[in-house]
Design a binder for these strands. Structure first.
Lengths: 105, 105
DNA sequence: CCGAATCCGCCTCGATACTG
DNA sequence: CAGTATCGAGGCGGATTCGG
């Protein structure tokens, strides 16, 4: 979006659930829709479906659909999806510092 | 906020202008209100003031006020404010990859 | 020059109900 | 099991106006 890669990265993972979804997928590689919904306590199937769709569009995750009965769909991270985690870790470490700093005063 | 440092970091720099403000301050260390407003084309004084106030609360920037006529207020990054930039660079590099990947298809 | 107060439109989120 | 359709509520951004 526009001209700033950082902003673009933010928009890609913005939204109330995207980070958690990425986190869960990183723990498991390969997870089913309902299983994911169970782990993300509180998310509706609508929001989950929408978030997964956007992440798939941005090539962060892969959707694999098996035409069985009952239907089965599995989600997993792409290389791109895995590659964000080092950056998120750095941000997390920094976030911890900010948090501690703001508790003092 | 809550229990996730990454989420917390995101909320701290969330908002339409925070990243740009951090960027401008990183270019200049020490900048005045109006000068900053001029560089962030399109921002209202309301949003700028509000964003700066929140960044100050989170200890990312320092506000130095000189009681002169006319009044002068200067903003600069704290150590914490400077420390986010490596993490943002990583995210930016990743964002570039995502962008390129999505242009192909 | 710097910023606070108020009001308003839009977009995201989510509850509910329904489908293959 | 894995979604889609629809509708409504709330919060953020922004325009405008006013004060020190």
């Amino acid at each position: 979006m526009e001209d700033c890669p950082v902003k673009y990265a933010f928009t890609v993972v913005s939204g109330k659930w995207k980070l958690q979804i990425l986190w869960e997928l990183n723990q498991q590689d390969m997870i089913r829709f309902n299983e994911l919904q169970r782990r993300l306590a509180g998310i509706s199937s609508f929001m989950l479906s929408k978030s997964l769709g956007e992440l798939e569009q941005n090539k962060l995750i892969i959707r694999e659909q098996y035409n069985e009965v009952p239907p089965r769909v599995e989600y997993s991270l792409t290389e791109l999806g895995k590659a964000i985690h080092p950056a998120l870790k750095m941000l997390g470490d920094w976030g911890t510092k900010v948090y501690n700093e703001c508790q003092e005063s």
